[in-house]
Each structure stands twice: as C-alpha cells, then as structure tokens.
C-alpha cells in the first residue's frame, strides 16, 4: 500500500514530502485555482516523486484552463490524474494523455455510497463501464470512524480505493463559501470572478446542531476523522493508497 501526501500549494514543504511515496497536487474542488497550480508544476515535479494531479468539477471556463494545464503536463513523466468531471475525462482522451486515471472524491459519490459502517456499490454496471476504459481506482474520504466501521469486501469487483484522511468531504458549492461578493438577482453571471480569498485560511465551524465541528476550506465543507482505524491491517481491503491531506 502506497502513502501519499496532498500538499498545500501555499507552502510546499520539502521535508514532509520526503516521507511519502507520492504527491497529490492540484485543485480538487475549485476550477478558479487551476492556474495557481499550473504555475507550480515544475517545482512539484522537481522532487522526483510520482505525482497525482487533482482536477475539479469544471465549467467551460475551467475546461479551457484545464486544457492548458494538461498540455503542459504532457512534458512530464510518471503522473496520474484524478478526475471529478466526465468532461475532464473527455479532455484527457482528446489530448491523448496516457496515464493512470482515478475517479476523484466528488465523482466517486456517483458510484459508491458511504453508510455508517460500510461502503456500498451503487450499481455494478457503472463500475463495469469505467473498467472497460481501464478506470478502476476510486478515491474516497476515510469513512472508517471506529472499530464498528467495517469495510465491505469488494473483492467481487476489480477496483481499488485511494483513501484520503483525516478530512471527510461532505459537500461542495460552485460559488465560494469564503470568497466572491454576493450575486444580486439582477446580475447574470458570465463567469465567477475569484480573488483567491480562500488562500488566507480555512475555518472551523462550531454549530449547536452536531457534536462534530464542520470545516470550511475553499468551496467545500468537511468534518475531521481522527480515527486511526484506517491503519489497522485487518480492516484494509481493496486499498491501494492512503492520502494524507495537509489541508482539507
């Protein structure tokens, strides 16, 4: 099983990276940050590690920017791409990029449902469609919260999981929870004008509704899973890689 680190683009820590087999790099949630990551591709590849490029849900604006990033990517070796949009999958095929493709945390929700104690396959036929185009790795948040959490044996399916920890993704908005001015009823948006205000900080949200704190980072909401059950070999089935997230 591989160990990967999803790094913080604001502070690329060489010492932390050295401890891991693979670097996860890119914007998993927001298309407005695609250019920010594209600028640092050279630096990240200079560490000589395997790189997994994360990509978000995209509009046509993001499609253009992703095309630029993917075109740039072609000059490197030894990378994978994590996809959260079928349009991005089409783009990979269009540009003839040959690399391993993973289905990211957003898109994986169409294929798997996380329940309290286990993970369920939504529809085996859907997995087969992806299998037929050589996609059999899915990325999910660590859903193992306690000893009572059991991962279902998915050995009947030819699939592997990459599991992110410690932040569990709950939801994503298209416009930002942090940045961006409010949009009036009279304004028909051509594209989101982003000031990258998410760069300052993430936020813990304490609510009287639940015992856990919510965490808001960029345009997404998380909770933290502090359980270490992930590292109990008895519970590990079909797991290809763990991905430690420096930041949500």
């Amino acid at each position: 099983m591989e160990n990967a680190i999803k790094i913080d683009v604001r502070d690329i820590d060489k010492k932390k990276i050295a401890l891991y087999d693979c670097i996860y790099f890119g914007t998993e949630f927001c298309e407005n940050l695609i250019p920010v990551y594209e600028k640092k591709l050279d630096k990240v590849f200079s560490f000589g590690k395997k790189i997994c490029i994360l990509t978000p849900i995209i509009t046509d604006k993001g499609l253009k920017e992703l095309k630029s990033l993917f075109t740039n990517l072609k000059k490197y070796d030894d990378f994978e791409i994590t996809l959260n949009d079928f349009g991005a999958l089409m783009l990979v095929k269009e540009l003839d990029i040959r690399c391993r493709l993973n289905i990211g945390r957003h898109l994986s929700k169409l294929f798997f449902t996380i329940k309290k104690n286990h993970i369920e396959v939504n529809d085996p036929e859907s997995l087969k469609i992806l299998n037929d185009i050589d996609i059999n790795t899915f990325e999910v948040s660590n859903f193992l919260f306690s000893n009572k959490s059991i991962s279902i044996n998915l050995n009947n399916f030819d699939i592997k999981f990459n599991i992110y920890y410690p932040y569990v993704l709950l939801s994503t908005t298209r416009t930002c929870l942090i940045g961006l001015d409010d949009i009036s009823l009279d304004h028909s948006v051509k594209s989101i004008i982003c000031r990258n205000e998410c760069i300052y900080s993430d936020y813990i949200v304490k609510t009287g509704k639940i015992k856990e704190d919510l965490i808001v980072s960029q345009n997404s909401t998380f909770i933290e899973n502090k359980s270490t059950i992930l590292f109990d070999k008895k519970t590990l089935l079909n797991i290809n890689r763990t991905v430690f997230c420096v930041r949500p």
Partner: peptide, 17 residues
C-alpha cells in the same frame, strides 16, 4: 451545494444534538 454530491443532510458520520 452541488446536488448529487452533497452530504449536508446525512447523518452518516455525525452525532446530532
């Protein structure tokens, strides 16, 4: 919140007060 990808109404991981 992007529908189909949202878990803000689920109790899968939470202890409600």
């Amino acid at each position: 919140y992007i529908n189909g990808f949202c878990m803000m109404h689920t109790d899968a991981y939470l202890k409600r007060i």
